[in-house]
Design a protein around this nucleic acid. Structure first.
Length: 195
DNA sequence: GCCTATCGTGATG
DNA sequence: CATCACGATAGGC
């Protein structure tokens, strides 16, 4: 079984340079999510947005249809299938690794702990890895690795918030919400395969 | 590999 | 509020 090596990082050359997380306190029925599914190199990809902010980026797997996934994630919000301009730079980034010209705002609902974890994920550069335990330490609570796992696993915005760059402390991959094969595939686009 | 200590959440009453 | 079960964990042996 292949082992993965973690690396030091300081936030430079990472997604934190062009993504800003916005916490949505009362994400309720006032909001409307515009979503559309797109063909990507990782299979079907769903992108959802509220206004000019991205609220969801995820893979559409067989057992989880796009709409039921949205219902599960945002139980109280209504949604509409439509293409939005803001989806375009996101798709470009996923497909080509093209860094967006304008800052992308990502709106999320979560406890302060979860927001902190997601912000940490943004700082990991492409092709590098960290562990659940390291993130816990960086947040000042070294024993909270398990809680970090929970937060990472519930990240609603894949790729942009690179939850695939977190692995287990023992060098194994750990899990992935959309399936471990997808995690491998995404990682494979970021590292030298010849290793 | 198995066992156990631990943490943040959401569900439940 | 209090408690409980549940992990994409970590570390010891």
């Amino acid at each position: 079984m292949k082992k993965y090596i973690t690396a030091e990082y300081d936030g430079k050359n990472s997604n934190s340079e062009f993504i800003e997380l916005v916490n949505i306190e009362d994400i309720d029925t006032e909001c409307l999510i515009s979503y559309e599914t797109y063909d990507s190199r990782f299979g079907k990809l769903m992108i959802g947005s509220i206004g000019d902010s991205i609220c969801y980026v995820g893979f559409v797997t067989i057992e989880l249809s796009a709409e039921s996934e949205l219902k599960k994630r945002f139980p109280k919000i209504s949604f509409k299938k439509e293409t939005k301009e803001i989806h375009k730079p996101v798709l470009n980034f996923v497909e080509l690794g093209k860094v967006p010209e304008k800052k992308i705002y990502v709106c999320l609902k979560g406890t302060s702990f979860r927001i902190a974890v997601w912000n940490e994920l943004l700082k990991i550069p492409s092709g590098k890895f960290t562990t659940y335990g390291i993130i816990a330490s960086r947040l000042g609570n070294p024993k909270a690795s398990r809680g970090v796992g929970n937060a990472v696993g519930s990240n609603p915005v894949s790729i942009l918030i690179p939850c695939h760059r977190v692995i287990r402390g023992d060098g194994n991959l750990g899990g992935y919400y959309w399936g471990i094969d997808l995690k491998k595939m995404v990682i494979g686009t970021e590292i030298d395969i010849s290793e």
